[in-house]
Design a protein around this nucleic acid. Structure first.
Lengths: 217, 217
DNA sequence: TAGATTGTTAATCGATTAACAATC
DNA sequence: TAGATTGTTAATCGATTAACAATC
């Protein structure tokens, strides 16, 4: 079902296709050509056809692609019909935002537990999910099948928590902490969200543009 | 000062260099070779030397790179000594997390105002910064030089807010909303943080790995 | 059928890796 | 000096774009 060895650039574009096709679907558009998609999304038509053909021939010569069929197909390729059990560690501002903000169920996940070591937070609920004491991590994961962990802890705590999660047997991570998990373990799957890095890149882009407009180099 | 036409892959790696060099500095390490950095960071030594040489010859043959000098140099390349005035729109969970969580001052920015249209939030303070009514956006930006906007509004509000910010003259955006700014304006600088996309990519990676271990294709 | 648009191969472009002379 | 490691050029690899035959 899944084709293998799809390159990282292609995979990164899939959610964007999914988003745009969803919008077209909402607008009631049922058919679209790679050329029209190109205009809307800013990828070249050639690249769109190449990308889609990694997974199969979803289009029809002379007519283009069926929006709904393609939308569903990409959802399936992404694996969104799954329901991976995820736990979130760190119920600070960021952890709370992630817990409340994300539509996990529409993205292939279910949030089954939140952990924190702040007594003021333990036993409260966020989005109807109980906040447990971090001490209970091992016991919880023994009782509840846990497929993935979301790391929203400060950098100082990340190393210890990561070791514990790894020892429990968790191998899939959504990592918001400033700690490079893949350096220490090589048999894990990590998707990083490094907000600091992102902000620094914005800073670079702005500074670079300013330098270019000031002609005095 | 800034070299021009640095490729996007190189720029994306800069914050990571900065982070690792900062750690070495904390540990009191004063000198490092591209080979050692390679082991720590997971980039090839060749790539590290290529990357750094985009900006200048910071190393010394036979000895390697001075950690502190290189750290400062990359900070300067990123433009972190700047102090761009930024406003944040949307004081929901995510906006609040971003406002509280980020060390703006160490990343070239200063957060000068937060905006929301929820009466319960207006005139409260987050991190000592006042939350203003979104209606006051134009007036505020007239009074206060505003270099960048951080968009933490829901998708439904993003389009209207983006138009208003653009009309005010703001051209630099840190975009957390699910709205593609660069489709509508072509003279702006945007750095996107699409959490939904990131979660879907994690879903793909997990599903893909599971398919590979189930041999039944 | 004629027009349109895909699927796919070939050409180009760019990024990464390898190699090595320069030099500390 | 000899050993080590950079800076930089050349070779390779991979991704994007262009082109066009297949076909709806």
């Amino acid at each position: 079902m899944h084709k293998k060895n799809i390159s990282a650039p292609v995979i990164k574009r899939l959610p964007r296709y999914y988003r745009f096709l969803g919008e077209l679907l909402d607008k009631g558009i049922s058919r679209i050509s790679s050329r029209e998609l190109s205009d809307k999304m800013g990828f070249s038509a050639s690249q769109i056809r190449q990308d889609l053909n990694c997974f199969g021939g979803f289009g029809q010569q002379g007519f283009g692609y069926p929006v709904e069929g393609l939308y569903n197909e990409i959802g399936r390729i992404l694996g969104l019909e799954n329901c991976y059990n995820a736990i979130l560690i760190g119920a600070g501002n960021l952890g709370k935002a992630v817990a409340v903000h994300m539509s996990f169920e529409q993205r292939g996940f279910r949030l089954i537990g939140i952990f924190d070591n702040d007594p003021a937070k333990i036993n409260t609920t966020i989005r109807n999910i109980r906040v447990f004491d971090t001490d209970e991590l091992e016991a919880f994961c023994k009782e509840n099948k846990t497929d993935a962990a979301i790391l929203c802890v400060p950098k100082t705590a990340a190393h210890e928590i990561a070791d514990r999660l790894y020892n429990i047997g968790i191998r899939n991570y959504w990592n918001f902490s400033h700690y490079d998990l893949s350096i220490n373990y090589n048999d894990i799957i990590v998707e990083n969200v490094h907000l600091n890095d992102s902000l620094m890149i914005l800073c670079y882009k702005i500074s670079d543009a300013n330098d270019a407009s000031d002609q005095n180099e």
